[in-house]
């Protein structure tokens, strides 16, 4: 109604307003177009070029994508990325949900904020340092191996660092914090009357949780899980520090193309593949994702 109204009553006053409004929104739009849309389009175009020897062949072709599917070293990167991301997402949700629930339900109200801040405090270690500090724990002469050797649990140090397990631990550490935050904020928004009503109607604690609390917090879980997926699959630092050079993930392979091989078109093509993976994940859980607008 209001939109139709402005169309039929476009007046001098409103036109002047509109020109002003364009002026306010233009800087942000131009920045986004110049430094996000254009580079992205350029990269997408470049993924259709090809590197041969030292030269860039600027002819449209799908060779990079064909190579991606035919060369096992490249394709395996996507498989590794997907496997690690799915494992990380599932473990993180399973660990974080009970934690968020305990903070919201068992911790006294006045201590909850404190408990939450504590739960996410290591967030504020620098991103690169966070993975490094896991190295201190997991490496051959690290905390865990030394502890286990001293109490005689093992006689030889375990190979914990530079493995997929190390990568997963590093990721889970980060995302448990993130998910605890999102799930907690979902849980406390839930009116206690839902639970009272369920209990009043004869549901036991488990039934109340399974039939009432869990479904109502599912959108929050899915939003957090999607965020985990996106951040995890696009990350280079954690797998590079903790996973080492075994079982490379897609971002590592992309960085390899940039580094030694200087194959920009291939890096661009792999980036497009990475983006498509995120898009598929988005479409898969789109119906649960509520992007709230006040």
């Amino acid at each position: 109604m209001a939109d139709a109204g402005t169309l039929s009553t476009a007046t001098a006053l409103e036109d002047a307003d509109r020109r002003k409004a364009w002026g306010f929104v233009a800087p942000a739009l131009l920045w986004t177009i110049a430094f996000f849309v254009v580079p992205f389009a350029f990269m997408a175009a470049m993924s259709l070029w090809k590197r041969e020897g030292r030269d860039l062949v600027r002819v449209w072709n799908f060779d990079n994508y064909a190579r991606f599917f035919s060369e096992n070293a490249l394709f395996q990167g996507l498989v590794n990325s997907l496997e690690i991301t799915v494992i990380v997402t599932v473990i993180s949700v399973l660990l974080a949900y009970p934690l968020a629930w305990i903070i919201a339900e068992r911790v006294p109200k006045r201590l909850q904020r404190m408990a939450l801040i504590l739960a996410i405090l290591p967030f504020w270690t620098s991103y690169v340092v966070r993975s490094y500090s896991w190295l201190l724990v997991l490496s051959k002469n690290g905390v865990i191996n030394q502890l286990f050797l001293n109490i005689g649990l093992i006689s030889e140090p375990l190979e914990l660092a530079s493995t997929r397990t190390a990568t997963v631990i590093g990721f889970v550490h980060f995302f448990v914090m993130l998910l605890t935050l999102t799930i907690y904020s979902n849980l406390i928004q839930l009116s206690p009357n839902y639970r009272r009503a369920a209990a009043d109607l004869g549901a036991n604690a488990f039934q109340t949780f399974w039939h009432v609390v869990l479904p109502l917090t599912l959108p929050g879980i899915m939003t957090g899980a999607f965020l985990t997926f996106v951040l995890c699959i696009g990350d280079y630092v954690t797998p590079q520090i903790l996973g080492g050079n075994n079982e490379l993930v897609l971002p590592q392979i992309i960085m390899l193309q940039l580094g030694r091989r200087a194959d920009f078109p291939m890096a661009a093509a792999l980036s497009i593949v990475l983006m498509l993976a995120v898009t598929v994940a988005y479409l898969a859980c789109a119906r649960w994702l509520k992007i709230e607008r006040a």
């Binding site: 580079p39 470049m46 971002p251 920009f264 983006m275 995120v278």
Partner: peptide
């Protein structure tokens, strides 16, 4: 969009 992709686009 992943930071890596934004960085790559700007870099190219």
């Amino acid at each position: 969009v992943s930071y890596l992709i934004i960085a790559l686009g700007l870099l190219s």
